[in-house]
Write a protein that binds this DNA or RNA. Structure first.
Lengths: 117, 117
DNA sequence: CGATAATGATACGGCCCCGTAACGATCCGG
DNA sequence: CCGGATCGTTACGGGGCCGTATCATTATCG
């Protein structure tokens, strides 16, 4: 079940979805924020600041700040780990799950509209 | 030749490519900049500031500034229109074409790696 | 001509993000 | 019990992008 996609199709798909994202009223997320959000929602918990930083190859403050801003948007939440109080466990939210789902819809819809190469 | 892609696949594709982009040393482009860049390279010339602004649903300064920064990166260039000197014609560059090609490679490669839903 | 319209650029104030460096809190080993 | 390691956060200085409003330049039309 391999996904065969041609370079021209890939570019058009990328463009159409990005145009949709620009038109969306919601504030744009940065490339890093999108990578963080999708990692949280696609990989198995638990997620920590340090783990995400290592996973993405960025510094910890990047993760902290991204969680701050995405937290304000309600896309994720944080909770201290009760067993090791140094850790912070990142949790999913309903709004975050909806946003991820919305993105999936966008991509699949645009993919379906693509003509031949 | 419709591209059938399932929501789960779409999300994983989006995540993998964004992880690649974060790891890339090159400075991230914003969502708007990507939309502008791909529009310039996928749609037929000529492209103008006003035209792109209308196409993306953003204000003209957004386009001017994006062209400034992408110009510094060598991804696009500008030239005044000789027939109507109010207009600026946006031109493609070799570096820009390479960057777009690189993105296409990234997406197609990641798509090929996707397992079943 | 001269007035009006259109184009792209610029100034401004505000907000967000970056990486480095430092910090307080917590855990752990001797 | 205490010094070092680990965790996440914060402070700092620098840079970028945003939208609104304004500007200079050029074209158009009466």
């Amino acid at each position: 079940m391999v996904l065969e996609i041609k370079p021209t199709q890939a570019l058009r798909l990328w463009r159409e979805v990005h145009l949709d994202l620009v038109r969306d009223t919601q504030p744009d997320l940065s490339v890093r924020q999108i990578a963080i959000l999708l990692t949280i929602y696609l990989e198995l918990p638990p997620h920590t600041v340090r783990g995400l930083a290592a996973r993405l190859g960025v510094t910890k403050p990047v993760i902290t700040r991204a969680l701050d801003s995405m937290g304000k948007l309600g896309l994720v939440s944080r909770k201290r780990d009760e067993f090791d109080k140094r850790n912070v466990v990142i949790q999913r939210t309903v709004a975050g799950a909806l946003a991820v789902e919305h993105l999936a819809d966008l991509v699949t819809a645009r993919a379906r509209e693509l003509g031949p190469a």
